[in-house]
């Protein structure tokens, strides 16, 4: 994996991880309907991070 590609993957992981952190801080202040919506997106974001981490892991260890 090229250095540029690695940087992009790391950037994606960091960016989404920051979103998750922010979401955790806001979560309890949200209305129940908003919480449901947010929880769903948090799950999708976590999955995205997992995909990026798998991609990084696969390429680094090849």
């Amino acid at each position: 994996m090229e250095k540029e590609e690695i940087e992009k993957v790391l950037h994606n992981i960091k960016s989404r991880a920051l979103s998750l952190k922010n979401a955790c801080e806001l979560f309890l202040n949200c209305e129940p309907k908003e919480q449901k919506e947010m929880a769903k997106i948090m799950e999708e974001t976590s999955r995205f991070i997992l995909e990026q981490a798998k991609k990084l892991n696969k390429n680094i260890n090849e």
Binding site: S15, R16, S19, N22, L26, M38, T45
Partner: peptide, 13 residues
């Protein structure tokens, strides 16, 4: 593009 980030920015405005 990050839907979660969209929500967070909107919530803080």
């Amino acid at each position: 593009d990050d839907l979660l980030s969209q929500k967070i920015v909107a919530k803080n405005i």
